[in-house]
């Protein structure tokens, strides 16, 4: 198995980072930091990936990830929007994309809307610089995002709830 089955480039970057630490078990916290930086939050999949790579029991990885307030496991929201603030994306205006999303959702990055519909997160270079600014919607990387596009996506997520209320 190389990188991750999903082919997500972020796993490759994480893999390289793990190699930098010679996959040392005591580098767990550093690796989790990098993982969160890349993905915005630590999903079960990601924790398992880290556990396998460092040859640690999943329970240990989960224990450490939940001990530190810094780490964010599954975001509370039904949907997640991760805006990349890495250099390439930033230069191409991802800060404006984030600001638009924050204004529309009425929350800051790292927060979840009170109705638990949306969690807004940021990441630092997700390995998609060629398509900057990149935003990850529910795990799907989207290319060349503008404030209008992020607003359209947030609106789309909102619709089904509108229909039910």
């Amino acid at each position: 198995m190389t990188a991750h089955a999903s082919g997500d480039k972020r796993f490759k970057i994480l893999e390289a980072h793990i190699k930098k630490f010679q996959a040392r078990q005591d580098a767990l916290i550093e690796v989790l930091h990098k993982a969160q930086e890349l993905f915005g939050y630590l999903e079960d999949d990601l924790l398992l990936f880290v556990a396998h790579r460092l040859k640690l029991p999943p329970s240990r990885v989960y224990g450490v990830a939940t001990f530190y307030h810094f780490f964010c496991l599954k975001p509370q929201g039904a949907h997640t929007c991760v805006v990349c603030l890495g250099t390439a994306c930033y230069v191409k205006g991802s800060a404006k994309v984030l600001a638009a999303a924050e204004a529309a959702a009425g929350i800051k990055s790292g927060e979840t809307t009170p109705d638990s519909q949306l969690s807004l997160l940021t990441a630092r270079c997700i390995g998609a610089c060629a398509i900057a600014p990149a935003v990850v919607y529910d795990g799907q990387v989207a290319a060349k995002q503008t404030p209008e596009m992020v607003l359209a996506q947030l609106e789309k997520w909102r619709e089904p709830c509108k229909a039910t209320t």
Binding site: L48, L56, P57, P58, S59, V61, Y62, G63, T66, F67
Partner: peptide, 27 residues
Amino acid sequence: GTKNVAGRGAKSFIIDDLNQPWGDSES
């Protein structure tokens, strides 16, 4: 290595694997 402690302080609790039902634990 099935069991560990998740969380901290008064909110800590014993978990199995990735905080999943014990019966589903692979380890």
